Structure formats: C-alpha cells, structure tokens
Amino acid sequence: MKPASFLAALGLLFTGATAATAANLPAAAAGNDDTIMVKLPNQVSMTIVARDKQQLRELKAYKLDSLMVLLDAYITQAESAGRKGSNGQVTMEFYPAKDKPSSKAAPEQVRVTVRGSKPNADRVEVFMNKKLGVTVTTEEDGQNENVSVRINSNDPKADSVKQAKRVAHKKKLSGTDFGVDLGLNTFVNKQTYAPGGVEQPYDLRAWGSRYVALNWKFWARTGKNSPLFFHLGPEIAFNNYMLEGNRYFSANAAANRTDIVQEPADQRNLEKSKLAVTSLNLPVGFTLKFKDKDSDKDLFRIGAGGFVGYRIGAHTKLKYEQDGRTHKDKDRGSYNLEDFQYGVSGTIGVRNFDLFVKYNLNDVFKENRGPKAQAISFGITLGDI
C-alpha cells in the first residue's frame, strides 16, 4: 500500500470515522478495547485498537508519514529475503528502539512476514508492540496483498518526515554533500623580496584577502557504527590577495617576474588592488564525528586531510577614483604563479558550527619570479561533510 493512500485513509479516519463496537469487528479485535474501523471503496480497511477512548483521541497527535518511511525499508528487506527462499516465505524482526535507545518515538519491535506461496500473491505483516494499534488490510484483484500494521509513539512532536530523512541520512554508509567555505587568506613564511636590490613589501589586507570554495564531497563511513568518515572532492577555490597600502601586483615581462608596485600618492588612490586566483582542487581526508547520546545529533567533529590542485585562471583588479569617475582595471595573466599546488587541511565543528584551515605547502609564486611566501586560508564551512 502506498504511503499516500495510507495517510489519506487516516485523514478520512480523523474526519469521518465513527466508533464501532467489538461485536462488529473480527475476532482479533474483540475484547474490552475501544476500536475504530474504516472501510474504503478500494477494498482497503483499517482497524484501530486502543485500551480506552483517551488513547484513541491521542492518535490525532501522531504523525504517520515518517513511520511509513521506516516500514518501507523493512518491508523491502523482507520481500527481498522472501524471493531468495524456497517457498517465498520469510519472517524478519527488527528492533528500532534498541538500535536507537535515545529516541522515545522508535517502535519497540517490528515483525515483517512475507508469504509468497502463490505466484502473484504476497502477504506482509508488520507489528509494533506499542499501546496503540492500527491494522491496514489491502486486497487487489489477482494479487491478494495483505498488509497488517500496528503502530504508536509517545513522542509525536519528534515524528516527521524531515526527522526520519535526517536519521536515515545519518545511518547511511555513503553519500554526497555540497559545502561552501568562506574565509580569509594570509601569507606565512615570508621572505624579503628585493629584486634589483630594492625591497618590495607585500603585506596583505586582512579583510580584503578573501577565500571562497565550492566543494562537492563523496563520503563513506568506515563501518556500520563507526564514527570515522572518509571523504574526497572535487572543489573550486577562489583566492584573493589584496595588498596593504597603495600597492599592486604587476607582471614585469622584461625581467620575467612579478613586481610589487608602489603607486605614488599624488596619482591614483587605490580602493582595491587584488590578485585573484582560481584553482580546481581535489581534497581528501577523514573526519571523526561524536554524537549527543540524548538527541543523536552531531555534538563534535574533527577532521584532517590534504589536497592537490591546479590553477585554472588568474587576474589583477584595480579600483580607484580619477577625474570624478570610478575606474576598474582588470588584467589577466599567469603572474608567475605556481600552476600546481598542494597542502594540508583541518576542520573542527561543534553542533552546527564548523571551522576550517588550509595550508599550502608550496610557494604561491614560482621560485625567484615573485615574492617567496606560502598561503593559509581559514574561515567557516556552510554545509555537511
């Protein structure tokens, strides 16, 4: 039975169903329990069994959508196992509450029985030993499909499709994620740059030297319940290096090097003077995730890895005011930058907040053709690993 049909039937139950006595129900429902039975035109019937009327009224607060996501996975496993058996019949038991002891909404037990004695006949039964029960029976011409479900939850607020999908995602052994890194760049291990005997300072503006990266990660869990995850890229990174003072990077073709030019104060006053570099990288690494026992959410994360990359573009951009007009000069070129780059990276996160740092082990510029320095990028990560 489709989840949509199941939910539609429940909607009808809450709006138009009337209480029926035990005498009008099958023998399985007879006794001192309060019951509700709904018959639909498509030969689907539902029976709800509870101890008293109060429990029947509590049923309206329970959301069944995420439960159907859980049952669908169990029924699929049982059907697959039944097809492998000699007579097509199999019974499987699952214990969601034991697998997730911190959740009050997880069913205590789910038993699925599939009988395939006829070529086109399947019988699926699902039971959860909770205080409220719901029985759904479906019959289709030529298929004779019978599905029986018993459900209940003590924590309806925690039961939703979004929560169920989040839990299923956390229990997956592999998957993909998209993330965005937002941060800043700085130069480290700097050495004096003085081509021709004239020193050329190249300090970076703290807030102007920005870093942005778009990354697609494939991740795989190293074991069913292991907290260790493996992940790899690709990634597109944008590094901006903006110089302090009224200075800018300039390609010196005659000397085959990149110079740092000091713009005279009586000429142009540079608002921006950045060197922008675009790279295609391949990060790889491992992340340890520790969960909160009460909520099963990520409490703390720490990861480490490395990356290799190739420069796919570079340009300088100067922004300044002159003669009452704003000018933006943009020049493309290699600027004697290293084509290949490699380095190490690290991440640390607490709940929904993540920090990253990336350290380039090779120099930004080619040897003796530009300032000798390495780059560090750091900031926050938006997304999951």
Rank of each mutant, 00 (worst) to 15 (best):
M1I: 12
A4K: 13
S5C: 11
F6C: 05
L7N: 08
A9I: 08
L10E: 01
L13K: 04
F14L: 04
A17T: 07
A22C: 07
A22K: 11
N24W: 10
L25Y: 06
L25C: 11
P26R: 15
P26V: 10
A28G: 10
G31M: 05
D33L: 03
S45M: 12
S45R: 15
S45W: 15
T47K: 06
K53N: 08
R57Y: 11
K63N: 15
S66P: 02
L67R: 06
D72S: 12
Y74E: 13
I75Q: 12
E79K: 07
R83C: 08
K84N: 14
N87T: 02
G88E: 00
Q89M: 00
M92I: 09
F94Y: 11
K98H: 09
S102P: 01
S103V: 02
E108M: 07
T113M: 03
V114S: 03
G116E: 01
S117D: 10
N120A: 12
V126Y: 03
K130E: 03
K130T: 09
E140D: 13
E140C: 05
V149Q: 01
I151F: 11
S153I: 04
P156G: 05
K157A: 14
K157D: 15
A158N: 12
A158V: 07
S160G: 05
V161A: 11
A164V: 03
K165P: 06
V167D: 14
K171S: 15
D177A: 06
F178H: 03
G179A: 11
V180Q: 00
V180G: 02
L182W: 03
L184R: 08
N185D: 10
N189G: 15
Q191H: 15
Q191T: 14
P195F: 00
P195L: 02
L204T: 01
W207G: 07
S209D: 06
V212H: 06
V212F: 13
V212L: 15
A213H: 08
N225F: 09
P227H: 05
P227W: 06
F230C: 10
F230S: 04
G233P: 09
P234S: 04
P234L: 05
I236M: 15
F238K: 12
N240D: 12
Y241Q: 08
F249C: 06
A251W: 05
A253Y: 13
A253M: 04
A254C: 01
R257H: 06
T258E: 02
V261L: 01
P264C: 04
A265C: 00
Q267L: 09
N269Y: 13
E271W: 01
K274D: 13
N281A: 14
G285A: 07
K289H: 09
D292G: 12
D298M: 08
D298L: 09
F300R: 04
R301I: 01
A304L: 14
G306T: 12
I312E: 04
T316D: 05
T316M: 01
E321I: 12
E321V: 12
E321H: 10
D323N: 13
G324Q: 05
K328C: 00
S334M: 06
F340K: 08
Q341I: 14
Y342A: 10
V344T: 11
I348P: 00
N352T: 07
F353C: 02
D354R: 10
V357W: 06
N362V: 11
N362S: 03
D363N: 15
V364T: 13
G370A: 04
Q374A: 04
Q374T: 10
A375L: 14
I376P: 09
G379N: 01
I380K: 01
L382I: 13
